[in-house]
Amino acid sequence: MIKQKQFDKTLIRERIAKRAEQEIVSGSYVNLGIGMPTMVANYIQTGKEVVLQSENGLLGIGRFPYEQEVDPDLINAGKETVTAITGASYFSSAESFAMIRGGHIDLAILGGMEVSEKGDLANWMIPGKMIKGMGGAMDLVHGAKKIVVIMDHVNKQGEAKILKSCTLPLTGKNVVNRIITDRAVIDVEDKGLVLVEVAEGFSIEEIMESTEAALHVSESIQIGTY
């Protein structure tokens, strides 16, 4: 039973990561957050030219190293050993966040705990639990040209994570452009949230029911796209 559940979880993460990959435009500079967002790199289609930024000071993250290639001085922001692509550059943390804050990163894909209908994001702290820190998330949400949040559509208790307003402490206010979940793709627009895609196995009604915030249904909505 537990094994079955884990298998499903892996498939769900894969589904979200693969859909998120479609957000990456060839020729762009992208920052992938720690955890599920990092998995998106595994699905980048051949032929797409993408430079991945790591906020610890690397532009041009490569694949994980073979055993004989491991360099303890070369890690990503998740502290995992990585390689650098040909044409990569290394720099200081101040330079790294200057390029983030200065609007030079085209896209950031981040994880989320809650997103509000105004595009507020909460993803760093649960009151009462140990506070680990926000790392670079608060800077990234204001710096990258486009912010895509990827997460499960509902929490472990089956409750909505896309809310009228966030209950958890915010990472950033009015910062999210698009939400991609295992069930739907939702855009944050001035008029509110717009449902633009529904994943295989779900109906528009089911998405509405599992979303607390009000959803406008896009005129060009696509069903079963992923």
Partner: peptide, 18 residues
């Protein structure tokens, strides 16, 4: 931190660097 022995100030990473 929980026992009150250690004070912590969390700062966004880019703000810390700057």
């Amino acid at each position: 931190v929980l026992s009150g022995e250690l004070e912590v100030e969390l700062v966004p990473q880019g703000t810390l660097a700057e």
